[in-house]
Design a protein around this nucleic acid. Structure first.
Lengths: 338, 338
DNA sequence: TAAATATGCGCAAACGATTGCGTTTTTGTT
DNA sequence: AACAAAAACGCAATCGTTTGCGCATATTTA
């Protein structure tokens, strides 16, 4: 049960004036003398006044809150993005509502609806693995709510996007492996419906091609993103004597699985087999695992800035696409020579 | 710019009825025939109606959103708590606004204000390291907003609390070390103003005492919680030849620092020195580090349930304090025998 | 000093939904 | 068939702010 709140009407009554004057004083509009404003503000403070945002927002139509949907918040990539978004939002005087989709399409749709009905000023999102195509997402655009997708996006959808150059990073990493003398590299890929994994695969293939290598059958394994999958598939490779001397995993977690399997089989890393991951999760440093840093905080900032462009401008703005350069982090796990 | 929204008034006009009827149909109140309700709902859907939550909440005074303030979201402990809270909130049909204080008192106060002015139905929080005493927090209670503190709490404050039994877990862990034959255990403690670190220290001392051990000078090091601090202090211990054969760190991160230092000095773990941490961060599994699991998801659920008790009941409810039993996770880093 | 222009303030109508109360229609009872 | 009770619906006030407009009062200009 709420205690009774004090409103501008109460203040007006106490001061023998009207709500208009009080409102003008409080919201810093003009058309009021400095003297009166001081007076009102003092009284307001004394009475413990808090503006009722619902009323204000009802009247003004809109809120100073933005919504952010991520698959999960406990991945270092996303928590850094969130941090970046918060920095910019705070500069602009906005607050951020964070929602998790848990990689689940239904949750994601619910999140979108929640944000829409909370009248957020804009929405930032990275799609879940289950989301195959834009549908509920169209609802956002239909309502003219400023919208930015980052990292995992629908490529076909015309929207603001902030992306990592996954292709470039993956190619660089592949070439690094080849230059280190690894010749038979297995790629642990992700689901094909997600742009980032497609791009990493493309980059991998481009790297091979540049060195005149043709990918063999079984050299690319689909949907190996978790530690468990990585462990399992590496075990399988070893036990079936599949010829390979390096693993490039599209996820740090499956790279971790690979490391565990190799350790169990007493296969030396990086001497016999090189291993690389993707995302620069904190544990990669401990394991000296080569990986790719995705400049996640920067990505959050960039996405937020783009969103605010949309919020502050007219609706006829055309969509932008911004690409961020990830950074290769070379560690011991792929240093055969050296 | 928003596109023009359709309101119940529009629907009423189309249907030749009034807003009352439309409202009753949409909000499922009674006093309306089933036939009319169907009719209205159909029309509403056809016109793409979305209720305006601001108006609704203005009228009803209150929102179906709860606020959650944590120091940081990228600690596995907190992200699990968040998950637990979300599960319960979702069962109740509430959404959750997550705020980070970044261990900063000023941010924390801002977060509180944001939540208050967003008229959340209740607030859950774990205080930042910088918060010495309850002040802004009193504002929450003054407004009769249901309030639950979890994990890091102000002990003196009369509020709903959900706590881990840090004392018990720390004592258990200390005894485990002693039973393994470690006799000179150094404790990396946290700031004294935070309850959880105080309790861990108390538990440590109680464990020693039970085995008739008196803590020596220099055996307890204050505020060693980060990887860097842990590394530094362990280096110092080794270099000054301080006699010790185990480290019980109040944080997994400083335990990690200790492991790195010991590795660098080629001191065998657990043979020469045992190491234990606290919190069950994911990397502890990789490093086979003994630690304490805090049942974080369960804690989030419990805290949320307690909050909803407050939201759903009358304001005269007395505050509760719920204690959760953490679980000792014994791994190789402290297994001297065996 | 009179006229022209600014400035400060109040009035009242919004914003979009909910709801108590009164009126009409339907249903049930005898 | 007449009447009572119940159900369905409409009217209008309300939630707390903001804001366009008009009227005083204060300030500037000629």
């Amino acid at each position: 049960m709420m205690v009774k709140k004090v409103t501008i009407k109460d203040i007006a009554r106490e001061l023998g004036t009207t709500t208009s004057t009080v409102s003008r004083a409080i919201s810093n509009s003009d058309g009021i003398s400095e003297k009166k404003r001081k007076q009102v503000l003092a009284k307001a403070r004394a009475m413990g006044y808090e503006p009722n945002l619902f009323a204000r927002q009802l009247r003004q139509g809109g809120s100073r809150t933005i919504g952010l949907i991520v698959p999960r918040i406990n991945r270092v990539f996303f928590s850094n993005v969130i941090h970046g978004v918060e920095i910019i939002a705070r500069e602009k005087g906005y607050s951020v509502i964070i929602c998790q989709s848990h990689e689940n399409k239904v949750r994601e749709d619910e999140n979108i609806k929640t944000l829409i009905s909370n009248h957020v000023a804009g929405i930032l999102m990275s799609v879940s693995m289950e989301s195959e195509k834009a549908d509920t997402h169209l609802e956002i655009q239909k309502r003219n709510i400023p919208f930015v997708m980052f990292d995992r996006v629908f490529e076909k959808l015309d929207a603001n996007k902030v992306l990592n150059d996954n292709f470039h990073a993956a190619r660089q990493l592949t070439e690094h492996l080849i230059e280190q003398g690894y010749g038979r590299i297995v790629h642990f890929a992700g689901p094909e419906n997600i742009n980032i994994y497609r791009e990493r695969l493309r980059g991998f293939l481009a790297g091979l091609e540049k060195h005149g290598i043709n990918p063999e059958k079984g050299q690319i394994l689909g949907n190996v993103l978790t530690k468990e999958k990585g462990l399992e598939e590496t075990n399988r490779l070893i036990e079936t004597s599949y010829p390979f001397d390096a693993i490039f995993a599209a996820s740090d977690y499956s790279a971790l699985g690979a490391l565990l399997s190799l350790k169990e089989h007493r296969i030396d890393v990086p001497g016999m087999v090189g291993v690389a991951g993707f995302a620069n999760e904190p544990f990669t440093e401990l394991l000296e695992l080569t990986t790719v840093d995705q400049q996640s905080t920067e990505m959050g900032k960039t996405a937020a800035r783009l969103l605010f462009e949309g919020i502050e401008s007219m609706p006829d703005k055309t969509n932008k696409e911004i690409v961020i350069k990830p950074e290769l982090i070379i560690r011991n796990s792929t240093l055969k020579t050296g």
